[in-house]
Structures are given as C-alpha cells and as structure tokens.
Amino acid sequence: MTRSWAVELAAIDGLEVVIAEDEGEATELLRGAEAAYGTLNSRMLAVAGRLRWLQAPMAAPPPGYFFDELTVHPVTVTNFRGIYNDHVATHAVALVLSLARNIPVYVRQQANGDWDRHLADSSVMHLQNATALVVGVGAIGAEISRMLAAFGVTVHGVDPQLAAPPDGVVAMHTPGELDSLLPGADIVLLTLPHTPESEGLINARRISLMQPHTMLVNVGRGPTVSLEAVNDALDRGALGSAALDVFEVEPLPPQHPLWRQPRALLTPHVAVVGPYIDDRRLGVLKRNAEAFVRGAPLENIVNKTLWY
C-alpha cells in the first residue's frame, strides 16, 4: 500500500490508519488491529486476536497466501478481482487473433527482412467456424467470451459455480465435463485462479484429448498448465499452437525451449497491464474500508478454502 493510499483511507471517519515498516512492527500493530492490508504469516496471525478483515494485495494471491491457520481463522479476506477484466480480456483475444492468422511467423520474418508469403489457407483458423472452450468463466472469462463471440466464435464455458451462460456463451458446463469437451474445441482458453483443484489441470493426458490443430491460451495462472507437456505436444505436432502469458516458473528461464518454439507465443505476465489499475485498486480498498467502518457487507469476499 502506498503512503498516498494511507492518506486517502485516513480521511474516512472512524478509521485509524498506520503503516508498518517491517514484519516486527506489523506484528506488534496486529495485536490491536481490526483490519489489515497485505500478506500475513502464521506468526503474525497468531497475535491478531481482534482482526476481522484482511484485504489481499492482489486479485489472486500466490500459493502460500492462504495457509491452514488463515483458512480456519474467522477473519474475512477480500481481494482485488474485477479490476483487470478489460485488460486481460483484450490481451487474451489479441493472442487468439495473432495465432489464428500466424502473425508470430511474420514478426520473425520481419526481423530478417524476409518476404515469404507461405501462409496457406489451411494455416488460418477461421474464427467463424471455430469453437472455443473458456475454462473459468468469472468476470474475465465472461468478457473474453463476449469478445470472441463478436468474431463469430462459438463459445462454451466451464465453471464450477456459474450455471447460466453469460453473453456470448452458448452453454455452460461443469468441470467434470472437461475431458469430454476438449476433443471438440479448436481453442482452449484458461482464465483460472491457482487453487488446489486447478494446479496441473492441463497436463499431458488432457492435451492428448485435444485436436492436433487446437490453440491453447493461458491468461490465468501459470501452475494450471504443464509447460513440459505443452512443449512436448508442440514438438510432436499434437497441439496446434500455444499462447501463454503466465508460467509455472516466473520469470521463464531464458534456456526454456518454449522461447524457441515456433508455434508458441509468449508474453511475460503482462495481460493485467493497462491504465487505471491503481485507481481501481484504491477504489476497491476505499469502498471496503468505508463498508467495514459502517458494518456493511464487503465486496470481493474470498472463499479461503478455494483461495478465490
């Protein structure tokens, strides 16, 4: 939290705001705190006897943020989901469009001044004939679905909680149906958070269920997709292409073979980048702080067991 945010929050009647400079100071302050912003560990949580609200510092905190003691603690945790919807959706669709038209091939040719019009009709994914499977139809997945549908893509959604299809989605399905849906998808696009259930979801077995021309896109969380399985499938021609903005290991090591994979398009976890993010983040924080003081419901409450 920046100091300017602290000034903004301190203007809320009934709210006292203090900034901890290190873990030791934070631990002492937590003894009397009713609310906190940031990341706690088990030692800090153990002394936070009055803590009722914890604002996570991001939309989907990394593994380890939700540990056993925090999960069973009565504190309500909120996050910043929803503030990146337009940026991530636009980035995801840009990746789809780039691979559908084989743009990465021409970017590489441009660097060498090559005029090679080798693109065959069969090399293009005609989006009006394509079926996309969006796995994780939260706010971001719903926006991606709407945008893909505008290009004529037939979109199916997979989500454990959403039953009614949002705009652009022809039908919703449960996670248990994923394996039966993969063979019919031309595009498999993931917007999943990292949870115990989603870790390693796209592995060698599931990639083997996809068609050889399938495009795999991940703008959710890196640990949901096995990079070894993706690279191996691309090498063997068992997967058409892959666009990844998030990775099992970040930064992706320079020596990783995916960097040199001709059918892969990689971006360094930048789908969330765009204007107004700081303002949106502060807006969520201020609204929740005002609601907390009034005793009103908070927004973006997290299911601590599911991590989102």
Rank of each mutant, 00 (worst) to 15 (best):
S208E: 15
H269M: 02
P212N: 05
I187S: 05
Q128A: 08
S4H: 12
G32H: 09
F292D: 04
E28T: 06
G113K: 13
R294L: 12
R280H: 06
V302N: 04
V219S: 00
I207H: 09
G283D: 11
F151I: 12
V293W: 10
L192G: 01
L51H: 04
W115N: 10
L234H: 04
L216W: 13
N300Y: 09
E8N: 01
V18K: 06
T224C: 00
S198D: 11
V217R: 00
V96G: 00
V155P: 03
S4V: 07
D13L: 04
L239G: 00
L285M: 01
L181R: 08
E177V: 14
T78I: 10
R206L: 06
A296H: 14
V107T: 11
P165M: 14
M147R: 15
G295W: 08
V17A: 00
A171C: 09
F67A: 03
M147T: 14
S198C: 03
P257F: 10
A149R: 07
P175W: 15
P160G: 08
L9G: 02
A36R: 01
E228S: 05
Q211L: 05
S98M: 09
E25V: 05
L252P: 01
R117N: 02
P165H: 14
T305P: 01
R50G: 01
Q255T: 13
T39W: 06
F67C: 03
N300M: 07
G82F: 05
A111S: 12
L181E: 10
